[in-house]
Design a protein around this nucleic acid. Structure first.
Lengths: 205, 205
DNA sequence: ACCTTTGTTAACCATTTGGTTAAATTTTAT
DNA sequence: ATAAAATTTAACCAAATGGTTAACAAAGGT
């Protein structure tokens, strides 16, 4: 008979709980007691494993921040044609946001409130290789394969359309009068529509 | 000689201070003392004019939320051709976000954390007439003037591209290695580029 | 002048909150 | 088994925070 580990290690439960609470309430809104309750342990144990609220938050932030730029480097560095990269970028991004819908508001909110603390730490020395994307776009323009566009503007266009709908979700659902299921369908549709739209705008004729 | 009102009414100063503090720190991050200090008055006076922190916050939120959908109704209800509306929408939106760059993260952050409290209150009975835009797009499709697109997806595309860059600003500046002046130029350029891009993607040939 | 209303403040108060401590329990090594 | 190390908890603590009170000052009306 396999021995089932009935309860995870406390440290893991704390991390999971902290992630849930911080993501939904933010640094200021989260209470250490909330996290302890969610993890089912005593509050003092939080300080035993992680020295302070700030330390715990930073641990979560860093772990979670990775997912905000999901596999972007991998995609940019792949040898794929531009249009394939755009399709893959949208697909990957929207899928990631579907799985962690609180992520963008959380990351951008905290990064805006404490830029010096977080923005630099997130990327450390390894920024995503935007220049590769930029160079490829410029190459395609020079070759006459696509219309002349500003590469960085293009990148932000794509990113905006993939991420923003998740941030505006509650308003969207209310204004458009749709429910969660319809929102999911709406988002799923975007995996195809966004790259189509972008690529159509790039084609020459 | 004109008598200069050396200090505004305290109530006004409180509102201005609360706006500044709440917008930058959010409901949870803002301290009543911060607001009192910013307004240059005693903390008790905050409670004299506005009963509680929540009441004060709601006042600010409601006042400020109006600017999140700047003149959208006006634009949708104007008799203008679709492409003109799109151009005007982008121009108006980006300009508003330039003037109140903290707005989107603030509104969407609070709306997400307390949807039942805020989302409905913001719009009250008067939602923006999205259906007018939708109908106009459908009409243009039927007339064969533009490619067939999903009207709501189109609207979100536009909104995303206008608003998101302001929310992602600190990350953007860091990743793209640009300063505030360059960001402003980047944004200014979008007033033309975004509608151009959208309209190009709608044209038939 | 005098009284009433409105505006403003210093000093408090109760609760919440992040954090600590010392004791108790469990695990691990010998 | 037993001592040492690691884990967990209940009880505290000090600071911060939203909010109240009572006294004081300014303005307005008579």
């Amino acid at each position: 008979m396999v021995k089932v580990k009935i309860d995870e290690r406390a440290e893991q439960r704390i991390l999971a709980a902290a992630k849930k609470i911080f993501l939904s309430k933010g640094l200021d809104g989260a209470r250490m007691q909330d996290i302890a309750d969610e993890a089912g342990i005593n509050k003092a144990l939080l300080h035993y494993y992680f020295r302070s609220k700030d330390k715990l938050f930073e641990t979560i932030f860093m772990e979670v921040a990775k997912h905000f730029l999901p596999r972007v480097s991998e995609i940019f560095e792949s040898g794929k044609p531009l249009f394939d990269k755009i399709e893959l970028f949208c697909e990957t991004y929207i899928q990631q946001m579907k799985e962690t819908p609180y992520l963008p508001l959380f990351i951008l909110g905290e990064a805006t409130r404490r830029p010096e603390t977080f923005v630099k730490k997130v990327f450390g020395n390894r920024k995503p290789p935007v220049h590769l994307f930029v160079a490829q776009v410029q190459q395609e323009i020079k070759s006459g394969n696509i219309k002349p566009v500003h590469p960085l503007q293009l990148l932000i266009d794509i990113l905006s359309m993939c991420v923003f709908p998740f941030m505006a979700r509650p308003m969207l659902e209310h204004v458009a009068g749709i429910n969660k299921k319809q929102f999911d369908a709406f988002i799923e549709e975007r995996k195809k529509l966004v790259p189509e739209m972008i690529i159509a705008s790039l084609k020459n004729n």
